[in-house]
Design a binder for these strands. Structure first.
Lengths: 143, 143
DNA sequence: CCTGAAATCCGAACGTT
DNA sequence: AACGTTCGGATTTCAGG
């Protein structure tokens, strides 16, 4: 993991469908050399995969919210992970320090759908209460 | 935007570096037909780009937090967007309904770095106060 | 890490339904 | 309007140095 690797990662983050020779031109390496590095970066888990950036609105999942979950005393991260993964509307989830125990990012078709997801989440045995914020506008998104 | 388009989007979301003929095999189309559809999906903005999924820990940006911002009465989303975009550590930002006015996702090298970002954010003229949650573990991430 | 060759893939043009 | 086929040129991939 040297400086060339970091530049390769940056190049592929900007356009994952660039050819190896194009990346090679940016980092002053031949295409085969770039491929070997990318293969190694994937094998070591630095690069976990390549994906398309899709406009969620185009798919009709246009209502987003962040939900803070408050849980019972002994709830493990593993339990939480297992539970939230069952809900396909959950696109991100974290355990956090602060008032809440977990923060969950939800993407749903509309408010009715969102409400339904919230009810499912609040039905989880370890959830004692929740507080939600509905996303009004997306200001930045460079995850 | 028909069912074939949706399947192409799904295929490229799972592996953005697949060849057009591989995608074609999945959706029963020839490679040029797939390319034409992908070109159209990009032109219409359904697909905004392709990116590598990078393990942030591998890059050393290992401290994450979500910060709720409370702002002065007349703060426009445009103002907020302009301001948060100036901070490279901000990877997501939204205006939200609920107690806070905005929710900002920050990725920093360590706690010291995070504190520094927080101070910069709280120095913005329209920010009256903030409340932060530090991410402990990442449960789900399929943005 | 580079060079080179074979297989594959891309992109554009053309013809078809 | 959208798909399939075809063809020249580029790219990937696997040798060997």
């Amino acid at each position: 993991m040297d400086d060339i690797d970091r530049r390769i990662v940056r190049a592929l983050s900007e356009d994952a469908r660039q050819s190896y020779s194009e990346v090679g031109a940016l980092v002053a390496l031949s295409a085969p050399a770039v491929k070997r590095r990318v293969d190694r970066l994937r094998a070591t888990g630095v690069i976990k995969g390549f994906t398309a950036i899709v406009d969620p609105a185009a798919l009709g999942w246009t209502t987003e919210s962040f939900v803070e979950l408050f849980c019972t005393g002994r709830t493990t991260p593993a339990q939480l992970a297992e539970a939230v993964r069952r809900h396909p509307e959950v696109v991100e989830a974290y355990t956090v320090s602060g008032e809440a125990d977990a923060l969950v990012h939800i993407r749903a078709a509309d408010i009715a759908h969102l409400e339904q997801v919230l009810e499912r989440l609040r039905g989880e045995p370890f959830v004692t209460s929740s507080r939600s914020m509905i996303v009004l506008t997306r200001l930045v998104d460079s995850v």
